[in-house]
């Protein structure tokens, strides 16, 4: 039942090329997915600013438009304001735990260095081992890097908190039960001319097409994420045949082959959205002209727009918090490994110190 433990072992050049190829792949994937998500955010933002689709549903001027009700139910189902409130409260604790691990690790190094220096001061040339300060330079540099990362995380926490503060009032309103939500939205006289008018039908159709474009992106995202490839074999062959690996060229060519069609479909999709959004804006202008605009209608519309935005903000804040929580948890694992490195080296130095002391006392 022999298993080759070294089956996955490859020459250093291949290892480095595979690592570089994976970075390029991740960059490509992130770029594609990033541009799709950005397009969805843009789309949602534009629609919210036009009070769409709520304006098309709001024929009574009184009941909560269906799309707003759906947004409300979606947030309530995700735990409403309380769930993000709680998670935001947890962030400082997660930060603190990470700081403590880092601080303890660096203190171990500081304490051992202080003792080492003390003994060097006492024994001078006879204390002839490398100073701890020199040995610990790389670890301290790593520790410094971790500090910078934590500083950036603190800033990110602040951004999340500010987003929350800016939107919590509207989010709270959107999370209220239907009757309270309805009561909080000012009434307006319904625009009777809206029903059956052509522009309403045109807008509805354009919005439906836009939904389709958004759904297509979800599918595309899944497909992009599911692409896998492994260039190890190709790199091994190149190294054996040519003595060198032209990683950039080989990876670019593989990426083109694997993601070329996805890239095209993404670009097509984004162009389609752009077209639809400008068509919608033209239709919306016609639509606005049709409506009886009075101050009650405008006030009502303002509130509906804010409620639609509140939904998008909630989704964004939720996602930010999830990202932050994962970040801190992942960082803890990494810092614990760092802590082990520090305690290992300090333990070795202590053992060495005790032996040196014994020798010096004997001599």
């Amino acid at each position: 039942k022999f298993t080759d433990l070294f089956e996955k072992m490859v020459p250093m050049a291949v290892q480095q090329s595979v690592s570089a190829a994976n970075s390029r792949k991740a960059e490509t994937v992130n770029r594609l997915i990033g541009s799709m998500r950005e397009a969805t955010n843009l789309c949602n933002g534009v629609l919210a600013s036009l009070n769409l689709p709520a304006a098309l549903e709001d024929l009574s001027g009184d009941a909560v438009p269906q799309s707003i009700l759906e947004k409300s139910r979606a947030l309530i189902q995700q735990g409403g304001l309380q769930s993000i409130e709680q998670l935001i409260k947890d962030l400082p604790e997660l930060l603190q735990r990470n700081r403590e691990i880092l601080d303890e690790s660096l203190k171990m190094l500081d304490d051992e260095e202080a003792t080492d220096n003390e003994l060097r001061g006492k024994f001078n040339q006879r204390w002839n081992r490398t100073p701890s300060g020199d040995l610990y330079k790389p670890l301290r540099a790593e520790g410094n890097n971790f500090r910078n990362i934590l500083d950036k995380a603190v800033q990110a926490d602040q951004v999340v908190r500010e987003r929350y503060t800016a939107h919590c009032e509207m989010i709270a309103l959107l999370c209220k039960p239907e009757n309270e939500l309805s009561a909080a939205i000012p009434s307006a006289n319904p625009a009777k001319t809206l029903q059956g008018s052509e522009v309403v039908n045109v807008l509805r159709s354009q919005l439906a097409q836009l939904d389709e474009v958004k759904r297509e992106r979800e599918v595309l995202e899944g497909e992009v994420k599911s692409v896998t490839f492994d260039l190890t074999a190709k790199f091994l062959t190149a190294l054996a045949q040519d003595g060198a690996i032209n990683e950039e060229v080989m990876t670019s060519s593989e990426l083109d082959a694997r993601y070329g069609s996805h890239n095209q479909r993404v670009q097509q999709n984004l162009r389609r959205q752009e077209e639809l959004l400008s068509q919608i804006q033209v239709s919306h202008q016609e639509f606005s002209a049709l409506k009886q605009s009075n101050s009650e209608a405008n006030t009502r519309e303002d509130v509906l727009k804010k409620l639609a935005s509140a939904h998008d903000s909630y989704i964004e804040i939720s996602s930010n918090i999830k990202e932050g929580t994962k970040f801190y948890n992942d960082l803890t694992e990494i810092l614990l490994k760092f802590q082990n490195k520090c305690s290992d080296i300090v333990f070795a130095r202590k053992t060495e110190r005790d032996e040196l002391l014994k020798e010096l006392q004997q001599s």
């Binding site: 690592s19 991740a26 990362i149 950036k152 995380a153 990110a156 951004v159 999340v160 930010n320 990202e323 932050g324 970040f327 992942d330 960082l331 990494i334 490994k337």
Partner: peptide, 16 residues
């Protein structure tokens, strides 16, 4: 993404 990336740090590059 709002938070810094930990990708570089996840791989322990030091070969002892």
């Amino acid at each position: 993404s709002l938070y810094p990336s930990l990708e570089d740090l996840k791989v322990d590059k030091v070969i002892r």
